Amino acid sequence: MILVTGSDGQVGYALLKTLAPLGAVKGLTRADGDLANAEEVAALLDKYQPRCIVNAAAYTAVDQAESHPDTAQALNAQLPAQLATWAKENGALLVHYSTDYVYDGSGDQPWQEDAPTGPLSVYGKTKLAGDEAVLAAGIGAIIFRTSWVYGARGRNFMLTMLKLASERDQLSVVSDQWGTPTPAWMIAEVTAIALREKLGNAKALAGVYHLTCRGETTWCDFSRAIISGAGDLGVPLNMSADQVSPIPTAEYPAPAPRPLNSRLSVTRVEQALGLELPDWRYALQLTLRDWVEFRNN
């Protein structure tokens, strides 16, 4: 059995469908148990006895993590550590997801997997602690560090922009933070490919991999692309892309500092799995079409 934690989240939801051809998949949601409670997690693992754990659960409320560090620590650091220990003791595989927030956001070049880390926020620090715990377990786990995750369902930047664009006639969006939007469906697809390799005893496929689309953009230009793309699909909006104004991060204060440079090099994952990841613009078109179909049904 493949056990997917956080299966009610964006990535977790996509994983349930994408991993199905690899075997029986069980998704864990908040209704199944409190993943911040080690005793409940232990009971769930002993109940389902998974041969593979895909950990899509995390505390991703970046700003709230500043005032709730214990909860962030429990889900982002203690949970993956516990999953890694159980996997080691029971001979299970583990896939874990991480974030661009483990880096300090300096410079203007894509981060490599072996670059020094330096998280700026509680969220980033707790996610890094989770990464380190998984690696320290020595079980050949796969860690995918991704960025700017969005999708046709759930709560994310794309859906927020579409909602705002239907209500307002202008928006101001940060234009000095750089990164790569990455849809949940693509993360799930690459995970399935990687797991198929691992289940075939490809022991060399282990460690940290960056997993995003290709290309780079800012939040401002991403929002413009969302509005423009939705308009091209006939979605009624109250504004056009040229009514999105750029602002610096300094004009949009938040409790948690954001990395200015979230570019991640994806060369390693492409070479390891024989992939050519899509440009973020093309991936956005596919995701918007999925959203329109979901919205109309």
Rank of each mutant, 00 (worst) to 15 (best):
L260P: 01
V102K: 04
T160E: 12
V11M: 08
L195P: 02
L75E: 05
L35W: 02
N296K: 14
A81F: 05
D131I: 08
A38L: 08
G154D: 08
Q271F: 01
E39V: 13
L211C: 08
A250H: 08
N201A: 14
P21V: 06
L83C: 01
Q10E: 14
S262L: 12
E251A: 07
A14P: 03
S228C: 07
V149R: 05
D232Y: 04
H96Q: 15
K127W: 02
H96I: 03
D221T: 11
F157A: 05
D108G: 07
G229E: 11
Y101W: 14
P69M: 12
T29F: 08
L3C: 05
V173M: 09
P80M: 11
G23L: 08
L83K: 05
R224H: 04
N238V: 05
A136P: 00
R263A: 10
L3S: 02
N238E: 05
K88P: 01
A87W: 03
A77M: 08
H68Q: 14
N156S: 07
V149G: 04
W185V: 05
L288C: 02
D114R: 09
T126R: 04
L44K: 05
L135E: 10
E270F: 10
V62T: 12
D8H: 13
Y97F: 15
G23T: 09
N76K: 01
E39R: 13
L164W: 10
P80H: 10
D70W: 10
A115P: 02
Y150H: 12
A72H: 03
L275K: 05
G229S: 11
R295M: 11
D232P: 01
L83R: 03
A92K: 01
R263M: 11
V25I: 11
L286H: 14
Q49R: 15
L286D: 13
E189R: 15
S262F: 04
Q10L: 15
V11L: 12
T182K: 07
A254V: 14
M158A: 11
L205P: 00
N156V: 08
A254H: 13
L286P: 00
W178I: 10
L28Q: 08
M158V: 11
R196T: 13
Y123N: 06
E89R: 12
A256F: 00
R145P: 01
A241W: 06
W185G: 00
A225Y: 00
R263V: 04
G234W: 03
L284D: 02
Q285Y: 13
G9E: 11
N296M: 11
L195V: 04
H96T: 05
D131A: 07
A57L: 06
R145F: 02
W280F: 09
R168L: 12
M158H: 09
G9Q: 09
Y282M: 12
D8G: 15
Q64F: 00
Q78S: 12
I227K: 00
A31V: 07
G27K: 09
A206Y: 01
T71D: 10
Y101H: 14
W111C: 06
R295I: 07
C52G: 00
P21G: 06
G154I: 06
